[in-house]
Every structure is written in structure tokens, then in C-alpha cells.
Computed example of a mutant assay.
Amino acid sequence: MTIIVFGATGMVGKQLVQQALFKGYSVKAFGRNVFSEFDTDTKNLELIKGALFDEGEVQDAIKGCDAVLSALGGGFDGNDKTRTLGIKNIIAQMKKNGVQRIVAIGGMGVLNADEDTLILDTENYPKEMIPVGKEHQQAYQYLKESGVDFTFVCPPAIKDHEATGAFTTNADYLPEPNNNIINSGDLALFMLNELEKNEYVKKRVGISN
């Protein structure tokens, strides 16, 4: 399988690249600083320096891939549109290349609190997290309307730690038990496993260690 990782130089992105290579995938790592973060001689790894908002560069990067993994990050004040416009461009270029599968990272606020309310819209949701929560919500909307086979993973706080394999997941709602933290390695492990198992296609996923 050939996959491409957007946000490859971030905390989760690095884990995705490393674990995917360990699984024997051919991996494309896309980003502005990939050549300073990865060894250019790594077997089965192609480094692609590019701009996320550039349609041509993203289209060329996705060409020949079987699936897309998005670990896009950015600011928390609502002014950084990496998560929304980035996903929008990725989806458009997936369609041009005939690539149907994407597993992407969102945020816990996009999960359901109940049948009618997102966690993002509840009274206790941290006010300082609302702008980035709205960005995640818009990214989810783009995915829902796209027609691609997406899985939108909605983690709580992410800890920079290796995979343990000890985590819980749930479709569209918080998992049980929920400890409000997930290791970056476990988040990456779930995303890669989901590419193979397809248990949460066109679903949001709550996850926790």
C-alpha cells in the first residue's frame, strides 16, 4: 500500500510515518520541512517538500497513492486555516486522482454530546478552544459533503509518547472509559489500523488511553 501523510513533521505525523514504514507501506511525507526531519535514505520513504494550499503540488503528491492520512495542525485562535482549507484542498486533489480513502485528525469537540448537540456547543466546553473547535467542525463538514470514504478521529489532549496499544474507541461519541488523553503513538496506530480494518468509515471516532 502506498500512503501519503500530510502534517508529517508534527507529533502525530512523525509517528504515522515511522509506524507505516514498519508495517511495510510505501510512504510519502508531505510538508515544508520534511527534508530536515527525515533521513533521505530511508527505504520506502519519499519526501515531498510542498505547500498545503498549492493545488498542483498536492495533486502531484497524491498521485499514485492508495490512501491519505492527515495529521494537520495549526494555531488555536481561529486565524489559522490549515485544518479547513488544507482538508478542502486535499479532498479536491484526491478526487482528481481517484483516491477515495482518508483518515484525518479532528478534535474532541466535534463528537456528539447527545443526539442534538456537539460537545463543542455545550456550556462546559472551554471557551479558549471554541475557535479551533469550529475549524475542526468545518473540516468535518467538508469531509461529510465530499463523498470520499473518510474517518475523522477526534482526540482529546495528545501526549507525545510511543504507542502502547491500550486505548478505547467509539463511533461519534466519547469512548468509555474516557481519560481525556491519548498518546501520539496510539493515535497513529489507530489511524493505520483503521486503513486496514475500515471499521469507522464515514464516522467520527472518540479515542482515549
Score class of each variant (00 low, 15 high):
F6P: 14
G7V: 00
T9V: 03
T9A: 11
T9W: 00
M11D: 07
M11N: 14
V12M: 10
G13P: 08
G13L: 02
L16I: 05
Q18C: 05
L21I: 01
K23Y: 09
S26E: 15
F30R: 05
F30E: 07
G31Q: 10
G31K: 03
R32L: 13
F35S: 14
F35R: 10
D41C: 00
N44E: 10
N44Q: 13
L45Y: 07
L45R: 02
K49P: 02
G50V: 00
G50A: 10
A51L: 05
F53V: 01
F53G: 05
E57I: 01
Q59V: 00
D60S: 15
I62D: 06
K63F: 04
V68E: 06
L72N: 08
G75A: 13
G86C: 10
I87M: 15
A92D: 13
A92Q: 14
A92S: 15
K95S: 09
G98W: 08
V99Y: 12
V99F: 09
V99C: 11
V99D: 06
R101G: 09
I102Q: 03
I105Q: 12
I105H: 07
G107A: 14
M108Y: 13
G109W: 10
G109Q: 09
N112P: 00
D114F: 05
E115L: 02
E115Q: 11
L118Q: 08
I119H: 03
I119D: 04
D121M: 01
E123F: 10
N124F: 08
P126V: 04
K127C: 00
E128L: 05
P131R: 11
P131V: 08
V132Y: 04
G133M: 01
G133S: 09
Q137C: 02
Q137N: 12
Q138E: 15
A139K: 05
Y140V: 02
Q141M: 04
K144L: 11
E145V: 04
G147E: 10
G147M: 08
F150T: 06
V153L: 06
A157S: 12
I158N: 11
D160K: 03
E162F: 09
A163I: 01
T169I: 07
N170Y: 02
Y173F: 14
E176Y: 02
E176D: 06
P177G: 11
N179L: 10
N179T: 13
I181G: 11
I181D: 14
G185Q: 07
G185L: 04
L187A: 12
L187Q: 09
A188T: 02
A188S: 13
A188I: 03
L189A: 14
F190Y: 14
L195T: 09
K197D: 15
E199C: 09
K202M: 08
K203L: 00
K203C: 11
K203W: 00
R204I: 01
R204C: 09
V205F: 01
N209P: 14
